[in-house]
Amino acid sequence: MGDADITLRHLARRRPDDLVRAFVPEGRPVEVLGWIDSQVTNIERRLDKALRLRVDGEPRVLHVEFCFALRDDVPDRVFEYLGFLFAALRIEAPGEPVPPIESVAVVLSGRRRRLPATGQRRTAWPGRPFSGTHFRVDAVYQRTVGELRARGSVLWLVFAPLARNATADALREVVAEIHARAASAEERAELYAALLVMATVDPWGHNLRKELVMMVEDKEEGLLRRTPIIGELIIEAERRGELRGEQRGELRGEQRGELRGEQRGERRGEEKAIAELLGRLFARRIGRRPTAEEERSIVERARAIGPGEVEDALLDLEGEALIRWLAEPTRRS
């Protein structure tokens, strides 16, 4: 899913409690113990999509898969992932029972007709009793803005542009709520970035992206232009003529000339946004900003194997192992 996947996974890691609360029965006490991290990470790096919990004091595991659409390969991916996850939990605690695991596919787009509440991957022979796995389907794009707001967290507000009844007025309220409830300017920037990325998915054809860009820019009074991830979206919108002059101020002729047809400049902007997001993740893991050489390696690897794989490595590898990995020659997948 590209930008959507890396953005959502980053936010989910920052707000695991808000992610979990939507999938635990209301009123049940829940404690988030952390993301699954084990030896099997070396084989299957996506294991950071599973959270260890206590629900009613009992151990549980929640696996969340963000999906652009409920394609035919999603049940296979869920089943494959659960095999890795089950093996990881057994290796981690030999002889102990593996906690019950719940899988949820959060779906961002697809058909207009209601998706089923559950999916399955059957492995049994035809005519034999079912064996395989079932998983929950959370089609966020088929929900209303009100239903997403009722989940009580700014994390779920970023999905509002996907809602079947999304309007400019509803998104203006969402932007104001994020502005009021985000804990810091950095978190606001990350939430707005996710909001704008979701608007590009646009499963219902609402075509609200340009209005949303203006709402965010107006609310922050230019601050987000200096935030690489969102700033590049605003510049791109201006290049395409999606912001009206009276609302953003006329661009000087020199600026307009620079923005037209600069595909290489767009690519550099995208790489800068990737480097900024992954660089912040590197800093949290290592305790310092990446050097120029490390940042160059991050961008090269993101281009070669994808931003999601680089994010996985930044989350999985510790200290010197991460630094050594960045120093190795880049291998294309």
Rank of each mutant, 00 (worst) to 15 (best):
E80H: 15
F84W: 02
A193W: 14
E147Y: 07
K49A: 15
R267M: 10
L47F: 03
R136D: 13
E258W: 06
R21T: 13
R46Y: 11
W35S: 11
L11K: 00
A105R: 00
E266I: 12
W125V: 02
P116G: 01
P203K: 04
G205M: 15
R113S: 14
G83M: 08
D18I: 10
G57E: 07
R280S: 12
F159Q: 03
L317G: 04
R21Q: 14
P307T: 11
P94T: 06
D18P: 09
E186N: 10
E328C: 07
M214K: 08
E211A: 15
T144L: 10
T133E: 12
A117W: 04
R244P: 13
R260N: 09
R188D: 05
R301K: 11
R121C: 14
V64M: 02
A168P: 13
H10R: 07
R225T: 10
R267D: 15
H10S: 15
R268N: 09
L148G: 01
L278D: 02
Y81R: 04
A182C: 05
I91Y: 13
E177N: 09
F23Q: 02
R172S: 10
R324L: 12
G27A: 07
S103R: 02
G146W: 01
G34L: 12
F79I: 05
E276G: 08
R296Y: 04
A176Y: 05
R280T: 01
G83Q: 13
F79R: 00
L155R: 01
E232D: 15
L155Y: 07
R151P: 15
R90F: 06
D218E: 14
I298S: 02
V137L: 04
L70K: 11
A176N: 06
R54N: 05
T123N: 09
L157G: 00
A124C: 08
G57V: 09
E311H: 11
T227Y: 15
G2H: 08
M215R: 10
I286D: 02
A150V: 11
A22C: 12
A166M: 01
R128V: 12
E236C: 07
R71S: 15
